[in-house]
Design a binder for these strands. Sequence first.
DNA 1: ACAGTAACCTGTTTGC
DNA 2: TGCAAACAGGTTACTG
Length: 270
Amino acid sequence: MPELPEVETTRRGIAPYLLQQRWCGAVVRQPQLRQPVSATLDQQLRGREIHAVERRAKYLLIHCDGGYLLLHLGMSGSLRILPVGTPPGPHDHVDLCFESYLLRYRDPRRFGLLLWCEQPPQEHPLLRHLGPEPLAPAFSAESLHHQARQRKTPVKALIMEQRVVVGVGNIYANEALYLAAIDPRRAARRIALVRYQRLVVEIRAVLQRAIAMGGTTLRDFQHEDGKPGYFQQTLHVYGRGGAPCHGCGQPLRSERIAQRSSFFCPRCQR
DNA sequence: ACAGTAACCTGTTTGC
DNA sequence: TGCAAACAGGTTACTG
């Protein structure tokens, strides 16, 4: 599930429970994630106070005195606030504990990440090479057009590259290209600046809309998890191969582009 | 420098 | 109906 809007929704959901609080400790049941979870996480966190809960790309940074917890949800991760003593399910790998509740990390596929870091974020190997945030001014049509100059790669692959722009996952790459009327297979260098201007607008619009909707259905992190479906009613192309285009009624095409499932309207997108 | 592939893991869906 | 293959929202490392 986690693309940028869901990570941002998670950040907003957990932040009120974390800010100004002190960690009581951590329980690691399964340390084997994308990188191993520190065996001493409990000692590393215990007693530290949290100052800020930040998002960079799809990473969450929980800033404490003396360092920060770097967290990624991978393909299947989720975080929830639960009462102390809630029995863990099969893929509940880590509990991060406070006095009267806990932050529980669940991740069936274990592509996620949970690291205690003391070096500055901008120097961290996982964060150092990340491109601009899509909602920040540094992400512009001009820079996108410039980076696309020599690139024969399909434009969809380009906008999913983390060093070009962060946080555009497979769903929103498909959606944004549909909204911008650009064929996702088109070589990046064969797209004019004016079309990149529209693409930047649509990437921002689709992400902002999804954040707004995620905020309405995933607001309460204390109870169940509010799962997917939150943005699904408004998807134009993703997962709709063979179904009629919302614009022209022609059947949408489904194709693998750069090893990712892709959906587009061959008539509306050129 | 760039494009393509494999790999990390488990759960769910698809197809025979 | 049952089973195996294919596929899934991400990212990185390696290959040619």
